[in-house]
Design a binder for these strands. Structure first.
Lengths: 127, 127
DNA sequence: GTGGATGCAAAGGATTTGCACCATT
DNA sequence: AATGGTGCAAATCCTTTGCATCCAC
């Protein structure tokens, strides 16, 4: 049976994610981890992030055409995304919308995606 | 001032989109358009789709790691996405969730993304 | 005629993967 | 010792772009 090993690289990646409240992308994590571990490779950072995500330790925020962002926060929350600068803000969950009354026959919903897109204060001013 | 030209290529791309109720990707549109216009290029299909999208004539459904899908339907609706086979179903809009009470200061929301992800009947059976 | 649009092919860029070597268990 | 993980670099894959030519206006 497959055992997940506790490597120095994975510990370092997790430590970086824990250390920030932003929602960094893999390149930023890579750059930060390199300060403590100069030989780590970008591929390993991606693999570590994947592993942490599938263990459910970190959350992945994926937007088409944008780099994936990683979020260590565990509390239930939604994301507010600025489409100008790409900043992602956390907001407490409001209500969970009810499921549509007429889902396709037999469809089982496992995740409701609710995001708010728009422009942050700064990006509004720049136009 | 910039004039948007009505080219045969754009008409053909729009015609293909109108002809289906699925949510095709660019490659499928390309393949279909080629039947009527064998010399059209994939680049032109992308440019036409972009143009139609920014005119608001078609809707783009983007999911990270997946090909973009294009949707001609104009009625207000939400999408139900099967994470097994990638099928996208339309459902009538339920209620619009209220905005969070504590948005970041000055943030202006322009779009609320509400999607239901899960497994369609067929993909459940295959596991 | 003029400038936006096209076709072709090459470039782009985030992420993934093959492989030989390394290190945790 | 076994086998999962790492580093490196090459490969992927959808999408975008540069450029010479074309054609809608």
């Amino acid at each position: 049976m497959k055992v997940v090993r506790q490597t120095r690289q994975r510990q370092a990646v997790l430590e970086v994610l824990r250390s920030t409240r932003t929602h960094p992308d893999a390149a930023w994590v890579f750059q930060e981890v390199r300060r403590a571990m100069p030989n780590i490779s970008l591929g390993t950072v991606y693999r570590s992030l994947d592993a942490l995500a599938s263990e459910g330790v970190v959350m992945v925020i994926e937007r088409a055409g944008e780099r994936a962002r990683y979020d260590y926060r565990h509390e239930d929350h939604h994301h507010v995304v600025c489409r100008g600068c790409g900043a992602i803000f956390d907001v407490p969950p409001s209500l969970t919308p009810p499921l549509p009354s007429d889902l396709p026959s037999g469809f089982r919903v496992t995740e409701v995606v609710l995001e708010y897109h728009g422009l942050c204060e700064k990006c509004q001013q720049e136009h």
